[in-house]
């Protein structure tokens, strides 16, 4: 097992929005790589592109509220040899400009870096229109696309950096609200692998984004109660690290997935598809069940939709019975 070097629980956790890591990573990347350019659809501060825009005004392009143009200008910049990061809220990009992404970026095979901020219900008071829950599904359906959903701001920073060296179209999923920083500078991250953060035998908890932190909390609580959980963090949902997932499924023969998005078709869908083909075991999926979000405080909404460690613990206790 790779040494994961997570934050020691005893030291407590700092919090920061995942999107902040993107902003930091992009700024540093801009200093190091002259080919990196950025475009934003009138949400430059909110998507954390502002520091890059101020530091490199000639490499930042304001697009206005025009997400179709955002994707296609990005495609053109990539055609000219640039590495364009294009950002908006995930509800609008890739929500509104899906066809432009499909044709001019994926089929055209232009390495545009699509950055969807404010994904998930934790967007909070803005409500359902702005809480993107289908972005993972949309992006992972596209040939050539790489789908990355970092667990915290530090990992988002690493991902932002590495995307510049990946010659494929990439989708980076970010969230608005501050969440725990549970990785460290020395926690490994590469585009592609899934990481085993806790080893266990009874059940595999497979998580992405900030839900991985909830999985860690649940795992620690459950181990006190004699249930041994294997926690797998999946920052790259596509292409999926099949070997790591299958190894775990063969060991535990029971899995539960958790993600802040629709419970079907995203991470849970990807794991289920893999399992049914190569090693069928019961897979339970936590996420939003075929409905839209609504206004509320981020924690209030996450609790309402069961996207927390408590619900994960209760669900694991329930499903573990089918093995006993």
């Amino acid at each position: 097992m790779v040494k994961v070097n997570l934050v020691e629980y005893q030291k407590g956790y700092q919090k920061e929005p995942i999107r902040k890591g993107f902003g930091r990573g992009l700024l540093k990347l801009g200093q190091m790589n002259q080919q990196v350019v950025a475009c934003c659809a009138d949400l430059t501060e909110s998507t954390q592109m502002l520091d890059f825009a101020k530091a490199f005004p000639n490499r930042f392009f304001e697009i206005g509220v025009a997400e179709q143009n955002l994707a296609t200008v990005g495609s053109g910049l990539a055609a000219g040899g640039k590495i364009p990061y294009i950002s908006s809220y995930a509800a609008f990009s890739p929500g509104r400009n899906y066809e432009q992404i499909r044709t001019t970026i994926c089929l055209n095979n232009r390495p545009v870096k699509i950055v969807g901020s404010h994904a998930g219900v934790s967007v909070g008071p803005d409500g359902a229109t702005h809480q993107m829950l289908e972005d993972i599904i949309l992006m992972r359906a596209l040939p050539n696309m790489v789908v990355i959903s970092p667990g915290d701001s530090l990992e988002a920073e690493k991902a932002t950096f590495q995307m510049a060296n990946d010659n494929r179209p990439n989708y980076l999923r970010l969230a608005r609200e501050a969440t725990a920083i549970f990785t460290t500078n020395s926690t490994p991250f590469e585009i592609g692998p899934a990481y085993v953060y806790r080893e266990g035998n009874d059940v595999s908890i497979i998580a992405t984004g900030a839900m991985t932190f909830q999985a860690l909390l649940a795992s620690d609580q459950l181990s006190n109660e004699g249930i041994s959980c294997e926690v797998i963090h999946v920052p790259t949902i596509k292409p999926l690290d099949q070997a790591t997932i299958l190894t775990s499924l063969k060991k535990t023969r029971l899995a539960i997935t958790i993600e802040e998005g629709q419970a079907s078709g995203g991470l849970g869908g990807a794991i289920s598809e893999l399992s049914t083909s190569l090693f069928p075991v019961p897979i339970f999926r936590l996420g939003i069940n075929d409905r839209f979000g609504e206004s509320g405080q981020p924690d209030e909404l996450l609790n309402y939709f069961g996207l927390n460690s408590d619900n994960l613990i209760q669900t694991v206790k329930k499903i573990i019975k089918i093995k006993r």
Binding site: Q68, T72, V73, G74, S75, G76, A79, G81, K82, Q100
Partner: peptide, 14 residues
Amino acid sequence: GCGLSQAAGLALAF
């Protein structure tokens, strides 16, 4: 409807 904006992006790269 997607050609003009790709051309624009390319022009900015140039």
